[in-house]
């Protein structure tokens, strides 16, 4: 059993007008096997939270803590966070020209495990995972994310999720840009990772659509840099009907 704790996290970014605070005190605890849906309007800071957990250099943590089984995540480099068991499925996966998917996957797996995977089982694992995600085998020879369609990029993220077996995954708008078939395939991949590895996850989304396929244990409403309400699946249904407008009103400056 692992625990990811976010305690009163404040995060700023640099802008032309000086530092701007995006996260204004986020607290959230995720345990192994749990799925937390984080829902909120555009610009509320959900992606900032995801990037800050992964350690993106553009985001500065000004106060607060992130602990993984008590270890201080904020002290870790970006690669060390991944090695510790955190995985960010990115909203906009980055193209890396000239580096093939198969080379990338093996290099990352070796770095994450501290030793190279056994060739035979690894090849089989990759093929199985690709089959499950309905990806063609030619995919492995293509360069990382280069020329991938939106749907292919998201499948490639979930392929990594299944192969790397992190303790916790942050899924940043994995549902955006997916048609209904791709959404089903990708969601099934997330569910497999959860069942097989007892993975905990933070599912960032605008829409309740993905929650039909990935059942959340908790739903949090994220407005203006913090969590303003939490509940179970019913909260998501209410958001679908009412939107975020009620929360935004109460959050307006007095």
């Amino acid at each position: 059993m692992s625990t990811l704790e976010i305690k009163d996290l404040h995060v700023s970014i640099e802008t032309d007008q000086g530092d701007k605070e995006i996260l204004k005190g986020v607290s959230l605890t995720i345990k192994s096997g749990e799925t937390h849906a984080l829902m909120g309007p555009n610009g509320s800071g959900k992606s900032t939270l995801a990037q800050a957990i992964a350690g993106h250099p553009s985001y500065t943590v000004t106060s607060g803590e992130i602990l993984l089984d008590g270890e201080d995540v904020l002290e870790m480099e970006v690669d060390e966070r991944a090695q510790a068991g955190l995985f960010l499925a990115m909203q906009y996966p980055v193209e890396v020209p000239g580096v093939s998917m198969s080379n990338f996957l093996r290099t990352a797996k070796t770095a994450l495990d501290g030793e190279a995977p056994a060739i035979r089982t690894w090849t089989k694992d990759v093929r199985t995972a690709m089959d499950n995600l309905e990806m063609e085998t030619a995919f492995a020879t293509r360069n990382v994310n280069e020329g991938f369609s939106g749907g292919e990029k998201k499948r490639a993220e979930i392929l990594q999720l299944e192969l790397f077996k992190p303790k916790f995954a942050i899924l940043d708008e994995t549902d955006s840009g997916l048609d209904i078939d791709a959404l089903r395939v990708v969601s099934a991949g997330v569910n497999r990772a959860q069942e097989n590895n007892d993975m905990g996850s933070m599912l960032i989304t605008h829409y309740t659509r993905i929650l039909r396929y990935i059942k959340p244990d908790f739903v949090h409403v994220f407005v203006d840099g913090k969590i303003v309400d939490s509940g179970d699946e019913e909260l998501a249904d209410r958001l679908e009907d009412e939107g975020y407008v009620n929360y935004e009103k109460t959050e307006a400056p007095a």
Binding site: Q83, M90, V94, V99, A108, A111
Partner: peptide, 30 residues
Amino acid sequence: FDEQQLFYLMARGIPEPLARKLIVRGFLNE
């Protein structure tokens, strides 16, 4: 270096020196 590429590779557990080499290698490979 493209910082986004570097972040992407490191976020997959690849240490910075190796990530940089991968990027250069990929750049030349084309």
